[in-house]
């Protein structure tokens, strides 16, 4: 009981003393900050990507994104580490219906294609590596639900190598362009077309692949023993 009261006191104080003044004193901005203004005016010239969020995520703040992919990666590793070795999967008592199985094998390529589309167009339209990766992961999840198990090793290799190439392409930026994760190792191309914006589509695809396989890894590990 005393804990409840203290919790209430703590939260009320936190809200009243810290959150409330912040809320009151941060009206909406009416113009871009100088930094955002730079991205808005120079971003297209610099990187050739119409989607500025993508430009920031993949290149300007590419180190963040690499870090974020790493976070997901170590979360996957950590979950795998915690859950420990899997016991042999027992064949399900009740196999999924034939209709569902067939439907799934029909749908899966479409889902994956859709995912690839999202991350390939990340520099042009909303969405990109993360979103596409999730779409792919959900496709695989679908397969898992109907107990059609894939060899996990495939994902493991995909995950490892997409990550490895991501870093390698980033390092190429140091050698061929201005710095780590610079997308201008490839020509910027025609603004607004799919093969433009230098290495952004390539990097975002690798990110998508990496995120997707990592998410599969998480789901796979958390499913635990059957």
């Amino acid at each position: 009981m005393i804990k409840q009261v203290l919790s209430l006191v703590a939260i009320v104080l936190l809200a009243a003393l810290i959150f409330a003044p912040m809320l009151i004193n941060t009206p909406l901005h009416t113009s871009l900050t100088p930094l955002a203004n730079y991205y808005a005016t120079q971003g297209a010239d610099d990187l050739g990507a119409p989607n500025l969020v993508t430009a920031i995520v993949v290149t300007y703040r590419g180190l963040d994104t690499l870090g974020e992919v790493t976070v997901l990666f170590i979360a996957t590793a950590g979950i795998g580490f915690l859950m420990g070795k899997k016991k042999k999967l027992i064949t399900p008592k009740r196999p999924a219906s034939e209709l569902l199985q067939n439907g799934a094998s029909f749908l899966l390529p479409i889902i994956i294609l859709f995912g690839v589309y999202i991350f390939m167009h990340g520099h042009l339209t909303p969405g990109g590596g993360f979103q596409g990766g999730v779409v792919i992961a959900s496709g695989i999840l679908f397969m898992m639900l109907i107990n059609q198990d894939w060899s996990h090793n495939v994902f493991l290799f995909l995950e490892s190598f997409s990550g490895f190439f991501y870093v390698t392409i980033g390092a190429l930026g140091i050698v061929l362009a201005g710095g780590f994760l610079d997308n201008r190792i490839l020509p910027l191309g025609t603004f607004g077309t799919i093969f433009s914006a230098g290495a952004i589509p390539l990097i975002y695809s690798l990110i998508g692949l990496k995120v997707g396989t990592e998410l599969v890894g998480i789901l796979h590990a958390m499913r635990g023993e059957e």
């Binding site: 730079y38 300007y60 703040r61 590419g62 180190l63 930026g173 710095g179 994760l181 610079d182 997308n183």
Partner: peptide, 10 residues
């Protein structure tokens, strides 16, 4: 990183 100076890039 990314071939730009801070604060544009990290």
């Amino acid at each position: 990183t990314a071939g730009f100076r801070a604060p544009v890039s990290i």
